[in-house]
Design a binder for these strands. Structure first.
Length: 832
RNA sequence: GCCGGGAUGUCGGAACUGGUAGACGAUAUGGACUUAAAAUCCAUUGGGCCUUUGGCCCGUGCGGGUUCGAGUCCCGCUCCCGGCACCA
């Protein structure tokens, strides 16, 4: 029985088929209007050096989907490339002296070979690398396109600066006041930078979320990030001055409850109000102190509020009342108008501030069911209620009041409806070398001049010197900086900032559709055939960043007629993390599992199978070596099963096709299992991406096939049925374990690749069981089981159930009140 | 605080629109094969109770409810994970 104990030689098999697939280019695709397309895409990696387990997981999931859809007859675009600009390359250059281009190139080579070893089915002819001039040329082209659309502008503004990365960051790249990449607290700096006007698309970015096949939580995260808020802006005149303080509020119904105003420390009016007054020194000291705090400190001081009276008063435009104007750190300049009306009775922050500084509290909304008394309140009451002390609005329900007061303000020209967003424009300048140069020239005479399209790309100079601190290599590179103005020809200076690498990744999926074109960023026919991406797969960490920027890009391109898709990614799958012993893999914890070691020890098929089997794709996956061994065991079982029978089972169509009507029904049972398995795998993969249950179904079929062989003498085996079964197993296993699938398929006598073979269908008739186990319950408790013909009628079921001895025992002394029957499932007898 | 998601054996996880809770895999235990080990194969593997073949009871985070029947639906909580947050 030597063969039976054999383990499958994965090393030979895997390299054999990987070479074959490479030569035959089985996964190369072309635009084909006559075929339904399917664009399957995984987020392209940053070439950091080597794949980690997280990469292994995404690329395995994507590969299974691509292989599966191909087999279903789709023209599948499944490309791969490299998000190759970025800081680590530059930092490596500073530390080790390797040029970023060299470092990146080596990493790409390494990671590409790892992806090949994993058995992925990419069309490598479409590989894109964002740091190469033939790619970043178009990134620059897109910058100019945005510029010409009025969507790129240069502005001086307070921006987030990461001292560690020595560059500015977009708002999306600051997490809790710290740099998303290195976790260093960011500081605020006033700089002139390039911005993309993403806020102009806020509403569409919000509205179009609805139709996306994305996880709810990702949609909600984007919703929160955009932070749409409807309200009114109201002007409060300043007593004794021409100035007005404009505020934004969502609670116009509480306008009669205003007892003071607060300006943000950065508000331009602050200085003017206090100038020359006895309040000036204290207020300006306070303003300076707040300005010195970095973002992290200000976030950390959450809840603690500080403020000062400015000595000035504002007039409530509704009731003419004079209220003191304060300056306070709990009001931020970036949101709304940088000034608020304070209604301590109905806003928790105002309430805390008022209590702290002894400012008056006035109730103007009485919630239903209890009587609010300002002096007795311990917190603000924000619930809706009835308006009180509100002049002509008294007695109105507050929710109605919001609208009525707004209308009243608008009529009198003292206020207007306004929608505010939390979303800020996207700051795309970076003070670093390893990125796409911003194609702009500054001329003393002409000002900001875009580099003409035909002069693209603005090449990143290769010979530069890296230093640990100071200006970026680009800013110090005189030949790069000094140029002539494209407009007037006089000496001019180039922009030395490069673009945020999120620019590069905002359009790479468009480039994949026609990466060879050198005349345009993409060919219209190709981009419109393939887009949108049907299934996008990647980590949740890009829920806002990459996914929001890409959506913005496509909307802009749609508006200019460059693409027909309104959204880049129709469906999104966010895969969970790979963890070990309940913790994220990290160097400090020493729980890192290396993909190379896994591929070496167990092979790609086993690694893939475990990744897919251990958890559904959205959930975290706990890496467990014993589980990996279980998957290796399973593949060996399949291997031995085919090896044992490959010379015995006749080709399909020849004599010995599966005979039915065998006396004991084992043949029918095995055949049924086969069809049920195909059905289950098909549904689990196509409808829900539940690879784990699909694989367990295949395991069950393999177990049953072994049982079948065990049960009978070899002479009694139905060899035709066994061939059908073995082929079925191979066909459905192939997307998950492509190498062994291909090998077994060929061992079974086939000449073509299993991966190009149509997905097997199932016969709905053969899925149905002839006999089923029906459960008999008495008062909802299972008391017996009956094996009956599947088509047994409800009446028969009921009668049979009532006749069962065990049932009678439980019915003794009771009266049958009701009998519920569910054909093929159960009978429930209700007795009292 | 607001929003989203979750809690099922020893572990990873199954259970379609309410209908046999624990599929599949791992672990553990026992057995077969072997000089022995590995590998392989077979059996058992939620808890408790009863004298057995067998049977009974409990059990899907907690407390209620709806229903013939609830892991699944409803109400009220607890805890965990994630996002946002002086956002006016």
């Amino acid at each position: 029985m030597g063969v039976v104990e054999e383990r499958y030689p994965f090393k030979e098999i895997e390299s054999k088929w990987q070479n074959k697939w490479k030569c035959t280019k089985d996964y190369k695709v072309a635009t084909d209007q006559g075929k339904p397309k399917y664009y399957c895409l995984e987020m392209f990696p940053y070439p950091s050096g080597a794949l980690h387990m997280g990469h292994l997981r995404v690329y395995t999931i994507g590969d299974v989907i691509a292989r599966f859809k191909r087999r279903l007859g789709y023209n599948v675009l499944h490309p791969m490339g490299w998000d190759a600009f970025g800081l680590p390359a530059e930092n490596a250059a500073i530390e080790h002296g390797t040029h970023p281009a060299e470092w990146t190139k080596n990493n790409i080579a390494k990671m590409k070979s790892q992806l090949t070893r994993l058995g992925t089915s990419y069309d490598w002819d479409r590989e894109v690398t964002s740091c190469l001039p033939d790619y970043y040329r178009w990134t620059q082209w897109l910058f100019l396109h945005f510029y010409h659309q009025g969507l790129a502008y240069r502005a001086k503004a307070p921006v987030n600066w990461c001292p560690q990365c020595a560059t500015v960051l977009a708002n999306e790249q600051v997490e809790g006041g710290a740099c998303w990449r290195c976790d260093t607290p960011v500081v605020s700096k006033e700089l002139e930078q390039w911005f993309f006007k993403i806020t102009a698309y806020a509403d569409r970015l919000l509205e179009d979320l609805e139709d996306l096949g994305w996880p709810e939580r990702v949609k909600v995260m984007q919703e929160n990030w955009i932070g749409r808020s409807e309200g009114v802006e109201v002007d409060f005149p300043v007593k004794g001055r021409e100035d007005k303080i404009r505020i934004f509020t969502t609670r116009a119904d509480t306008l009669y409850g205003v007892t003071y105003m607060v300006l943000a420390p950065e508000h331009p009016l602050v200085e003017e109000l206090v100038r020359g007054t006895r309040y000036e020194k204290d207020v300006m000291d306070f303003v300076a102190r707040v300005a010195r705090m970095n973002t992290a400190d200000r976030v950390a001081g959450e809840g603690k509020k500080e403020g000062l009276f400015t000595g000035a008063y504002a007039v409530n435009p509704l009731n003419g009342e004079e209220v003191p104007i304060w300056v306070g750190d709990y009001v931020v300049m970036e949101y709304g108008t940088g000034a608020i009306m304070a209604v301590p009775a109905h806003d928790q922050r105002d309430f805390e501030f008022a209590r702290q500084y002894g400012l008056p509290i006035r109730v103007v909304i009485q919630p239903e069911g209890w009587e609010l008394v300002a002096e007795e309140m311990t917190e603000a009451v924000t619930d809706p209620g009835v308006m009180v002390n509100s002049g002509p609005f008294t007695g109105l329900p507050s929710q109605e009041g919001i609208k009525k007061v707004a209308a009243y303000l608008e009529e009198r020209g003292i206020g207007r409806k306004k929608v505010n967003y939390r979303l800020r424009d996207w700051l795309i300048s970076r003070q670093r070398y390893w990125g796409a140069p911003i194609p702009i020239v500054y001329c003393d005479g002409c000002g900001i001049v875009p580099v003409p399209e035909e002069e693209l790309p603005v090449m990143l100079p290769e010979k530069v010197k890296f230093r640990a601190s100071g200006p970026s290599p680009l800013a110090r590179h005189q030949e790069f900086v000094n140029t002539s103005c494209p407009k007037c020809g006089k000496p001019a200076r180039r922009e030395t900032d490069t673009m945020d690498t999120f620019m590069c990744s905002s359009w790479y999926y468009l480039r994949y559709t026609s990466p060879w074109t050198s005349r345009r960023p993409w060919e219209e026919e190709d981009v419109n055939y393939w887009m949108p991406v049907d299934q996008y797969i990647g980590g949740i960490e890009h829920a806002i960043l990459h996914l929001l920027y890409s959506r913005f890009f496509v909307k802009v391109l749609y508006d200019s007629g460059l693409v027909q898709a309104k959204e880049p990614f129709a469906n999104l799958l966010t895969q969970g993390m790979v963890i070990k012993e309940g913790a994220k893999m990290s160097k400090s914890k020493g729980n890192i599992v290396s993909p190379d070691e896994i591929l070496e020890k167990y092979g790609a098929d086993t690694a893939r199978l475990f990744i897919l089997f251990a958890a559904p794709p959205e959930k975290d996956l706990d890496w467990n070596e014993r589980g990996v061994e279980g998957c290796a065991r399973f593949l060996n079982r399949v291997w031995r099963l085919v090896r044992r029978l490959e010379d015995k089972v006749p080709p399909l169509g020849a004599n010995g096709a599966s005979g039915r009507g065998d006396a004991d029904g084992d043949d029918a049972a095995l055949e049924r299992s086969l069809h049920q398995t195909i059905k289950k795998v098909t549904e689990d993969v196509s409808e829900r991406f539940n690879f784990n249950t699909a694989i367990s179904a295949i395991m069950e079929l393999v177990n049953e096939t072994y049982s079948y062989l065990e049960k009978r003498e070899e002479s009694q085996w139905n060899l035709g049925l066994l061939r059908e079964t073995l082929e079925g197993i191979t066909l459905v296993l192939a997307p998950f374990a492509p190498h062994i699938g291909e090998e077994l398929w060929h061992r079974l006598g086939h000449k073509d690749s299993v991966h190009l073979c149509p997905w097997p269908g199932f016969d709905p008739e053969k899925v149905k069981a002839r006999e089923v186990t029906v459960v008999v319950q008495v008062n909802g408790r299972v008391r017996d089981r009956m094996l009956v013909a599947a088509e047994t009628s409800e009446r028969d079921l009921r009668e049979m159930a009532l006749e069962r001895e065990r049932v009678k025992k439980h019915l003794s002394g009771k009266k049958v009140v009701k009998v519920i029957t569910v054909p093929q499932k159960l009978v429930n007898i209700v007795a009292r």
